[in-house]
Nucleic acid binder design. Structure first.
Length: 354
DNA sequence: AAATAGGGCAACCGCATCCCT
DNA sequence: AAGGGATGCGGTTGCCCTATT
């Protein structure tokens, strides 16, 4: 309210910090604590504003800061939390030991955002980019088969590190999601008279998507009472659960129109079962794609329900530890969707590859 | 070898929120 | 309850380094 920003004070130094300044700041805080940031610069003998000192300390000099490259686990945590929270960097930072909000924000802007765009997702909504679906050739180029086969080799690795899916593998799985998406789009056109005029495009999409699927060679998934199929679904089931009344689900298991819009009109029963018992798969393909069951609201997990409640916590419990409540797929009521649908590690961890 | 472009990151800016009086 | 200072937060900028031409 009309307050003069502290940094407007004239004569105060701006710009990069010198080692001497750093030393003064660290020394002072170690001895006295930061106390009032506004008063600190004078007391510490620094010609800086308090705000600058605070930033330097919290983003760089704090002893508990972890520096260096982000691990795969950290990367996935950020992606996961961002899909739920959006640009709540400080909240995301509380889930990553030693990482500052600024560092996470920079990492997002320079790496993760680009990665999502490359995968064909809108980095803000974590939804498929609609423009992608208007161009089939782009989609098919994205789902480059050679790449897929190579990337799937390390999947056995997941057995040992259940919750840690490499980001590149996540990319590949996202590509597979697109294929399913494509097939669902085909199914939609097949089941809706108003779309049948575009029959040649439909058939082309159908053929090419199935060719891709047929060629994917994935190690068989062992029988698992809870989860025995690789489930590829509509990504990102959450809207950003933050801010005012926006703490609500965007959708669950909605069918996507070819242009990427959810269409509640289309029952899942009308969609094709993408199961290798129903469709001819290429030799060596031991790969089952199924649609999940339609969501039953009563199945929701506690924290999932919390997101819908007026007193919802701003963030869900989070963990990358297998079996931990947030990470474990079973904690989502046995479904593979919710926030886990986008991050394949969350729904693949139960799968047992042999 | 020099110029240019692009990426990465630290730091700044200004608004929002908290908290004390 | 209101005012205003202090702090937090997210967006943006600008510098530096490296790769490319």
């Amino acid at each position: 309210m009309g307050r003069t920003p502290c940094c407007d004070e004239s004569g105060l130094k701006k710009g990069p910090w010198t080692p001497e300044e750093d030393q003064k700041l660290v020394q002072y805080i170690e001895q006295h604590g930061h106390g009032s940031w506004r008063a600190l610069p004078k007391l510490a003998g620094l010609n800086r504003c308090g705000k600058s000192c605070r930033l330097r300390w919290t983003n760089y000099l704090r002893p508990d800061i972890k520096r260096g490259k982000f691990s795969e686990e950290e990367e996935q945590t950020i992606l996961h939390l961002h899909s739920i929270l959006g640009n709540k960097w400080s909240t995301i930072a509380t889930h990553l030991d030693g990482r500052t909000d600024n560092e996470i924000k920079n990492f997002w802007n320079t790496h993760l955002k680009k990665k999502l765009i490359q995968m064909g997702f809108d980095p803000m909504t974590h939804q498929p980019r609609t423009d992608l679906f208007s161009n089939l050739s782009q989609l098919l180029a994205l789902a480059n088969l050679q790449d897929l086969m190579q990337q799937y080799q390390p999947l056995e690795h997941i057995n040992q590190h259940a919750a840690t899916l490499h980001a590149d593998q996540a990319v590949q799985l996202a590509k597979l999601q697109y294929i399913q998406h494509l097939l669902q789009s085909v199914a939609y056109t097949s089941n809706n008279d108003s779309y049948t005029q575009n029959r040649s495009t439909e058939m082309e999409m159908d053929d090419q998507a199935f060719n891709l699927l047929n060629s994917i060679n994935i190690p068989p998934i062992k029988e698992n009472p809870n989860f025995n199929s690789l489930q590829l679904e509509n990504p990102s089931s959450f809207s950003h659960g933050y801010g005012g009344n926006s703490s609500q689900l965007l959708h669950h298991h909605q069918t996507l129109l070819p242009h990427g819009l959810a269409d509640p009109q289309v029952p899942f029963s009308s969609l094709p079962s993408l199961n290798n018992s129903d469709h001819e798969m290429g030799q060596g393909s031991n790969f089952t794609v199924v649609r999940s069951q339609e969501n039953n609201p009563s199945d929701e997990s506690p924290w999932f329900n919390n997101l819908l409640s007026p007193t919802a916590p701003s963030i869900p419990p989070t963990s990358n530890v297998p079996g931990d409540a947030c990470c474990s797929r079973s904690s989502y009521g046995g479904r593979s969707s919710d926030s886990s649908s986008y991050w394949p590690d969350l729904f693949l961890e139960d799968a047992n590859y042999g």
